[in-house]
């Protein structure tokens, strides 16, 4: 098995709108090891979100190679891709995207229900997960009754409850104040990185850069440099 959990090389992506082409990714080389927290940072419009969308298999790349735990989304049929994503990837979104009419526990149980687990079992697992993120007393609360930080913790619990191998976080702290943001990152680092899990975090919040094992700086669709403690021969391409 590859030493890389995520490995992308020469990835390009172009958006075509009204006859105009926008180059979002211009040959990205990036790789992440199991148990590693990789940060993708850079100014707005630099391609961070497009890159994690490609990594998570919800956008198709145009060119290049990209494998997740040795599997290539492009080689999968749509159904297989959806199933693979449901089993192996957890998501933490900038706006949380919790279902507003479901309680915290019910929201956390959703990935398990997508993977066709029994509802009672799913709710039990969801409650255990909420205990782990410190929301044991909020299992029956609706998202509207929770603070921003608490909602993000519910989202983290939802991203981890089905024990995915990769967790993709899009600006997890941008909707939170500084203190709450740090708490969320502490939680992500403590809980999410267990069992050799991989975290890819997109952010432009410099206050949380310190949580990354490596930081890939992006600009204009390219990775310009990586703050990497590893020896140079272990990195790939521009990293």
């Amino acid at each position: 098995m590859s030493e890389w959990a995520v490995k992308c090389s020469g990835v390009t992506k172009t958006y075509k709108t009204g006859g105009q082409s926008t180059y979002a990714l211009r040959g990205i080389d990036v790789a992440v090891r199991p148990g590693e927290l990789m940060m993708l940072v850079g100014p707005s419009g630099c391609g961070k979100t497009t890159l994690i969308s490609v990594i998570a298999g919800i956008l198709d790349r145009d060119e290049g190679e990209c494998t997740i735990f040795g599997e290539d989304f492009k080689a999968m049929r749509p159904g297989q891709r959806t199933k693979f994503r449901g089993l192996n990837i957890g998501f933490v979104f900038q706006q949380f995207n919790l279902l507003p009419t479901l309680t915290a526990a019910e929201n956390v149980a959703v990935p398990l229900l997508i993977n066709r687990e029994n509802r009672g079992h799913a709710i039990r697992r969801a409650k255990e997960m909420l205990e782990r993120v410190g929301l044991g007393e909020k299992v029956n609360s609706l998202p509207s009754r929770l603070s921003g930080g608490q909602q993000q913790r519910v989202a983290i619990a939802r991203a981890l409850v089905h024990r995915p191998r990769l967790v993709v976080c899009d600006e997890p702290t941008s909707a939170l104040d500084h203190v709450t943001g740090e708490r969320v990152m502490d939680l992500l680092k403590d809980v999410a990185l267990e069992d050799g899990r991989v975290l890819v975090v997109v952010t432009h919040d410099q206050r949380i850069f310190k949580y990354g094992d490596r930081i890939a700086h992006m600009d204009d669709g390219r990775v310009t440099h990586v703050d990497a403690p590893e020896p140079a021969n272990e990195t790939m391409g521009g990293i």
């Binding site: 994503r85 990837i89 997508i114």
Partner: peptide
């Protein structure tokens, strides 16, 4: 109103048939 939630469900692995 729930389109982002439906999008999130899609991202999390809920197919169109679900």
């Amino acid at each position: 109103d729930n389109i982002k939630q439906f999008g999130a469900l899609k991202a999390m692995g809920a197919g169109n048939s679900r």
